[in-house]
């Protein structure tokens, strides 16, 4: 079955394994075996339950913190919108300040050369 250079030991080893099987027979468990199994199962269930309980509490706290942070971030933006501050960029603010209706007192100077040429005495 297992070829090799240990040929003569093969059978002896098999016999030793068989003897080992007999030297370690099946054993009857003690009277506390089943109660012990159930104790361990219940202990593990308690651990699992308390872990789940903690995980649920943590998840709830995380959701609450997220909501609170969301509200906190939303409220300042809303109040500033009501106040009307910082809602325009610089160019929009400049355009509003110099609208078409506003007199162009600082506009570029325009010279009409034809008009000055037709004037007598020049």
């Amino acid at each position: 079955m297992y070829p090799g250079d240990h040929g003569n030991h093969e059978e002896e080893l098999d016999a030793l394994f068989r003897a080992y099987r007999e030297a370690c027979p099946d054993r009857e468990p003690g009277v506390n075996f089943m109660p012990g199994v159930w104790q361990r199962i219940e202990a593990q269930q308690r651990n699992t339950f308390s872990f789940l309980h903690m995980a649920q509490a943590f998840a709830t706290a995380a959701v609450a913190a997220t909501l609170a942070l969301g509200v906190y971030l939303y409220l300042p933006q809303n109040s500033s919108a009501r106040a009307g501050a910082y809602q325009q960029n610089y160019l929009e603010a400049l355009a509003d300040a110099n609208s078409v209706e506003t007199p162009d007192i600082v506009g570029p100077l325009r010279l009409d050369l034809r008009q000055s040429a037709n004037q007598p005495g020049r």
Binding site: Y20, C24, D26, R27, E28, P29
Partner: peptide
């Protein structure tokens, strides 16, 4: 199964 399993574990 307990007896059989205990025997196996012993070995």
């Amino acid at each position: 199964y307990r007896k059989r399993i205990m025997g196996t574990i012993t070995r």
